[in-house]
């Protein structure tokens, strides 16, 4: 390609930088997709308000910045706390009232699933409109000194400092999640409920508490993704959660609905292919990639690329 042509190195600089951009955006999708996957795992329902958790995380960070200008580390912690609170409240309001029946048939029933799908949707409308009324519907700029766009030069390559932050926070979050799921009691109970809710109840696991914990963990990851993207892209607005939410949802489905590793891998594939595609096609058409992946996956690999084999789809 002409753009990298003058430099003597062997790979195309522009291509490599797009790859890095893609991985960064893929990690953001991955953080959100994990929330979807965890909640789908324990409840077998899709949480349509997840995009709003992401938006609330970003706004909580912005409020903290404008109120008392804390260091970056504290901003991330505040976003995490906001996410945890939102997740807790969301579960209480939009999901728990529909969990009155505990037998297996109603846990898996279509009516119950549609009810929670729509109640989470109603909550997402309410949250988005409430933020719009309180904060205004236009784009909110992030104060200059918090913007993570300082260029960092490594050899011939230029990165934004935000990309490093996204890498760092994502890797730490993913590692923490693995530790939590595999080494702690609450992680064990989350995996048990995901595996078999009724069975988990019979062996004495408090399913309600486990579900609350799942919502809190998933929403914390979603909220931190929101503030990272806010700092990296420089503006936040009430409808910002929609597109990443859909992309993360696609990643979850591609990964097989209840495989965390699959969701992360597919989120990265998605982010990288979108970034690389902008080399060849216009930005607007790049959105098509996620949806084409989704349909192709569903048609040819109905259990997802990483999903466990199931009886039928």
């Amino acid at each position: 390609m002409a753009r990298g042509g003058e430099s003597p190195i062997l790979f195309d600089i522009f291509f490599f930088q797009q790859l890095v951009n893609g991985v960064a955006i893929g990690l953001v999708y991955a953080l959100m997709a994990i929330g979807f996957t965890l909640i789908f795992g324990v409840l077998n329902v899709v949480n349509f308000a997840h995009g709003e958790v992401y938006m609330i995380g970003a706004y909580a960070g912005l409020l903290a910045i404008t109120a008392f200008a804390p260091p970056l580390f504290v901003v991330v912690l505040i976003a995490l706390a906001a996410g945890a609170l939102t997740g807790f409240g969301l579960e209480r309001i939009a999901f728990r009232p529909f969990r009155r029946f505990r037998d297996e048939a109603s846990l898996k029933s279509k009516a119950m699933r549609e009810a929670t799908l729509l109640s989470s949707l109603a909550m997402s409308i309410i949250a988005r409109e409430a933020v719009e009324i309180i904060m205004g519907s236009n784009m909110q700029p992030i104060p200059q000194q918090y913007l993570l766009l300082q260029p960092v030069q490594i050899g011939p390559l230029t990165f934004a400092s935000g990309q490093f932050l996204i890498f760092g926070v994502s890797v730490v979050s993913l590692a923490a999640l693995q530790w939590l799921l595999n080494r702690t009691r609450i992680g064990l109970s989350i995996r048990a409920v995901a595996n078999n809710p009724v069975g988990a109840m019979y062996v004495g696991i408090d399913t309600n508490r486990t579900i609350v914990a799942t919502f809190i963990i998933g929403s914390m990851l979603g909220a931190v993704a929101g503030i990272l993207v806010g700092l990296y892209q420089g503006t936040i607005f009430p409808g910002m959660g929609f597109t990443p939410g859909i992309k993360a949802f696609v990643a979850m489905v591609m990964g097989g609905l209840n495989s965390i590793v699959g969701a992360v891998a597919c989120a990265l594939i998605l982010g990288v292919s979108e970034a690389l595609a902008t080399n060849f096609i216009a930005q607007g058409w790049a959105d098509l990639i996620a949806y084409s992946f989704l349909v192709i996956t569903l048609v040819f690999f109905p259990t997802g690329l990483f999903g466990a084999a199931r009886e039928r789809i």
Binding site: F249, L288, S292, L294, I313
Partner: peptide, 18 residues
Amino acid sequence: MRLVSIHFAVATLGLGEI
């Protein structure tokens, strides 16, 4: 046509967005 339940819903979502 061979997809059921949530998989069908997701496929229609993808087709709609396409």
